[in-house]
């Protein structure tokens, strides 16, 4: 299964009248988790979250596709060596 890049947030058993609602709820929870953290703590939180979600996805093909897509949008690195 390829990486799903369509809107995909949902809540089992809940019918959302407005399509944006579950995504907004996720985003609020994510921002809320950063409340009161230092910058370093926030970075650690994001990294831990990525690792947990990656494990949940599990499928290496999907994860490689996600890594590539995410990396492309960040721009060239400051290092001369090309990204692996």
């Amino acid at each position: 299964m390829p990486l799903n890049t369509e809107p995909n947030f949902r809540e089992p058993g809940v019918r959302h009248r407005w399509a944006y609602a579950p995504g907004d709820a996720f985003y609020q929870a994510l921002i809320g988790a950063h409340q009161g953290l230092s910058d370093a703590q926030s970075e650690l939180l994001n990294a831990r979250l990525v690792l947990l979600l990656a494990n949940h996805v599990g499928d290496l093909a999907v994860l490689r596709e996600a890594i590539a897509l995410a990396r492309r949008g960040v721009g060239p690195g400051t290092d001369e060596t090309p990204a692996a």
Binding site: T5, P7, A19, Y27, I31, D39, S42, L45, N46, G73
Partner: peptide, 30 residues
């Protein structure tokens, strides 16, 4: 209001230009 919130917001905005999943998270007023 915080650096973490801004980083995530800007990440959404960059993804929004690339994939529908990113666009769905852009919140410029519901």
């Amino acid at each position: 209001k915080t650096r973490a919130a801004r980083v995530l917001r800007d990440a959404v905005l960059t993804l929004a230009a690339e994939v529908p999943a990113g666009r769905a998270l852009v919140n410029s007023g519901r």
